[in-house]
């Protein structure tokens, strides 16, 4: 009779976490930055159809890094969750906290019960009436949630990028300033010269608190060129 090998729970969890982290580290980074009139999201993404940043609801957006099929699935689930909630109750009853909880439970359950954890990291952000009421939640592959203030960087070189963002970011920056900062940070490399990313290779979107109802807006290449040109 063969005995199954004993694997300690610590080892099991560590293996899974390493596996997920490796998957996430392969992808390009996403930075999320708060500015005076909203929240900006930016990533390097040459595709115009396969988005990493998307609208979930009127004031809520979603950004992800990792495996596309896995976070796309979570994004669709989020849109369904928000639309169902808004239809059952009212549009004003849909909030980022509820959605972040649902995602956290899903990620956590998959991490502990299924054979393979989800190789994704997410940000769920909601823009409020004032910058103080903005909410940014960062969710990890194991279901842990962090309530972030001001800025988040995730993906490939998350820690390196976070440091660079923290150096230059301050409350009350304008959209132009945060987009400049985002592009500079995304082009940073651990060693060697920093790259300059062309506007056509960028995916940038904002949750603009001054817009009525649906706050989400993508900044296409022409608008970005104009914004970065100054």
């Amino acid at each position: 009779m063969t005995m199954p090998f004993y694997v300690s729970p610590e080892q099991l969890m560590k293996d899974r976490a390493d596996y997920a982290r490796k998957g996430i580290a392969r992808g390009r980074s996403v930075v999320v930055l708060q500015y005076d009139d909203g929240i900006a999201f930016a990533t390097e993404n040459p595709s115009r159809a396969l988005h990493k940043i998307s609208e979930i609801y009127d004031r809520i957006a979603f950004a992800a890094v990792g495996k596309y099929n896995e976070f796309e699935n979570l994004r669709v689930a989020g849109v369904r969750y928000a639309d169902l909630r808004g239809y059952s109750y009212d549009r004003s009853d849909v909030n980022a906290r509820g959605l972040a909880n649902a995602y956290a439970q899903t990620l956590g359950t998959v991490f502990t019960t299924e054979s393979k954890p989800l190789e994704v990291e997410l940000v769920v952000a909601e823009v409020g009436a004032t910058p103080e009421l903005d909410q940014i939640y960062r969710l990890s592959y194991d279901g842990s949630v962090a309530d972030e203030r001001g800025h988040v960087a995730m993906g490939g070189q998350a820690e390196h990028l976070s440091e660079k963002v923290a150096e230059s970011w301050g409350p009350g920056m304008s959209l132009e300033e945060v987009v400049h900062l985002a592009v500079r940070v995304l082009g940073a490399q651990p060693e060697g010269e920093d790259r300059v990313i062309e506007p056509t290779a960028l995916e940038v979107a904002v949750l603009d608190r001054t817009r009525p109802r649906r706050a989400f807006r993508r900044l296409a290449a022409p608008a970005l060129t104009e914004l970065l040109g100054a």
Partner: peptide, 28 residues
């Protein structure tokens, strides 16, 4: 919304089933 939270709190299977882009089909 009664079934939106499953036993373990994760999003129910209907939410993560790929396929339809229609809210009506999802509700049905």
């Amino acid at each position: 919304m009664s079934r939106s939270a499953g036993g373990d709190g994760r999003l129910p299977a209907a939410f993560t089933t790929p396929g339809t882009s229609s809210f009506l089909d999802f509700l049905a």
